[in-house]
Design a protein around this nucleic acid. Structure first.
Lengths: 351, 351
DNA sequence: GGGTTAATTTAAAACGTTATAAACATAAGC
DNA sequence: GCTTATGTTTATAACGTTTTAAATTAACCC
């Protein structure tokens, strides 16, 4: 019996035209292993060989098979973002995603969307992603002070970045907008305009940003020693119609506010409409300062003063930080970022 | 030399705790192949065996390794959506994505986002996705009458669904909103209110929906035999500020329009503001009919009449049709869908 | 010129799955 | 008791990559 072994199937009959490492190996007359190492620029491979292999790869239009890499290495090269349904307004989700995608541009990472469907809880989605290794890292928003998702992720040492801080004792990667300073400065502006009684339409209190806004607002009104009000029954998550009605109703009761601190553009528009229902004019009988995340409000209602939050930039930071975290960074100073509202305040970003 | 072969590594020492087919095989005392077939409910496997294997799988929390499946079968189980940067407003992208994700719920498909970064052309992104087999199917919006992306995809027989129709001679899968009927009925409403000269703020003409809107508008004004105007210099893609300024400027010139057909909520708000700059009141000196895609406009300005387009439902249809297409459906009647504006018009959906 | 070391390349195995073809019982036909 | 059929299970190979360990070549030293 002949002992001569035929070489394994040579790269002639592939199932599709797509070039693989073997294609390059056949052309270069080298082994598949060598090609693999050359392309990952392993210094153990001769400098010249590496160059030649790179050139052939470029020429045949090689790009590595993600499934094979993932199977072998256990890394998915995927970043997942948990999308919430009430983020559909004014492009919050899309802006953040564009930013993340921009930060991922030029890397091997792809962005996949895990929408939070009504009947799935958030924590289930997180569990699912971890258990099935759907991604190498995760992005979440709407963090709660003692967010159970964050706890779970940290327990499993799974890389993630939150948009928003928590109050958990163990530090974790985050990117956040300084909503305290935003609310503080916004409220001070209302008071500086000579308004007597500013009112707050707050974020939902179960989320961190809600209490940051509240805290900023309260600090400003206490410093000024003026009257204030926290509008009851509604928050930023309520539909515009509900906010509008509530504001109008409030005005018809005793001692109404004459200034509003709004955490979002929709909220500001709804407030203006509610006041207008009562015959009041913005800039005359009352003022508003709002957070701006798109170009809509300032174009429609320039009389609303705004403080800008750049969500696309936020997304870029999130993407960059998540990459750092995945590649092993543990120094929290490198993994946390607090974005300060822009001028006329303390301009620029940085922790 | 002994000819006895040791059985291949048994599933005792895995690299992680994650159960695989081998885990189940070891427990059941069957071969890996059998498990694979049993789980795919292959009738060649004994009914009882199938049941037993399913139970074990459930018990150990098995879920198949997507990378391995993908490597073996060549199918990615991924749907990609091409995201455009100007879709960031009012949650267009997020709504569509939620809808698609809902249609994908319960299947093995994941949704990945391919953002169209400024320096990448759309056609490059399509090419990239096809060449690298990044997905089994693609979703695109903002179709042009002779969309080169659609041509390319059809040439390669790559499954896709567009949001919007083309005028290409070869039919292809799409989901579209009937913008002709929308514009026609909207314009008729303006005329029915006794308005003398309706004006159109059109979509960008390079896109199919722009010309559908124009056509609907023109049909209505010609039937009525009334004066009309197509506002020059701006379209729906312009920022709210630009639309506002243009509308105000136009009003100060000769023979201004007294009614507006707006293709979007932002456009309607900008128009109202522009007119308000000239001291005019909606519902008194002029009227607007607009397309509604969120709850914002109707809450803020109930005096604007709207016709609703449900983008999440659109996304669901897109998802369902793409699945059909991927699983081999070729009957175009099953793969095309035109959504008709809701009551008081011809209500309901259907081609 | 044998022995050691360094530089470079390579063979073989493995990741978890599925497709192909073969093996194994059991029953039926004559 | 031999084939033929049928129902059920299995071994083997393959998808394209990376990792481990081994092989090959070149260079250098006494």
């Amino acid at each position: 019996m002949s002992r001569i072994t035929m070489p394994p199937t040579t790269g002639v009959t592939r199932r599709s035209g797509k070039p693989t490492l073997r294609t390059i190996a056949d052309i270069a007359g080298l082994a598949v292993t060598t090609i693999s190492r050359a392309l990952s620029d392993d210094p153990v491979i001769n400098q010249e060989t590496r160059k030649r292999v790179r050139e052939i790869a470029l020429q045949v239009g090689y790009s590595p098979d993600r499934a094979a890499q993932r199977l072998k290495t256990g890394r998915t090269n995927v970043i997942a973002i948990l999308l919430e349904s009430h983020e559909e307004i004014l492009g919050y989700g899309t802006s953040i995603m564009s930013g993340i995608a921009a930060a991922l541009q030029g890397t091997t990472y792809h962005l996949i969307v895990m929408p939070n469907l009504p009947h799935t809880t958030n924590i289930e989605a997180v569990n699912y992603i971890m258990r099935n290794h759907m991604a190498d890292g995760l992005v979440m928003s709407r963090t709660e002070p003692f967010d159970p998702r964050v706890r779970l992720l940290m327990e499993h040492n799974f890389p993630f970045v939150t948009h928003g801080r928590t109050e958990l004792s163990t530090p974790h990667p985050y990117v956040d907008y300084d909503n305290f300073t935003f609310a503080y400065e916004a409220t001070k502006r209302l008071i500086a305009k000579g308004r007597r009684k500013p009112a707050l339409i707050s974020g939902p209190m179960q989320f961190s940003f809600g209490s940051h806004i509240l805290h900023g607002f309260m600090t400003a009104v206490r410093e000024a020693g003026c009257a204030y009000e926290i509008i009851s029954e509604i928050d930023l998550d309520h539909p515009a119609g509900a906010i509008r009605d509530r504001i109008a109703r409030r005005h018809r009761e005793a001692d109404p506010p004459d200034a509003f601190m709004c955490g979002g553009e929709v909220c500001a528009l709804a407030t203006i409409t509610g006041m207008s229902d009562c015959g009041l004019t913005l800039g005359v009988e009352y003022d508003i300062v709002a957070k701006q995340t798109s170009q809509l409000l300032s174009a429609i209602q320039p009389k609303v003063e705004t403080i800008y939050e750049d969500l696309t930039a936020t997304g870029e930071h999130i993407g960059r930080i998540l990459r750092k975290r995945i590649s092993g960074e543990t120094d929290m100073d490198q993994l946390q970022m607090l974005l300060t509202p822009q001028p006329p305040f303390s301009g620029g970003a940085g922790k």
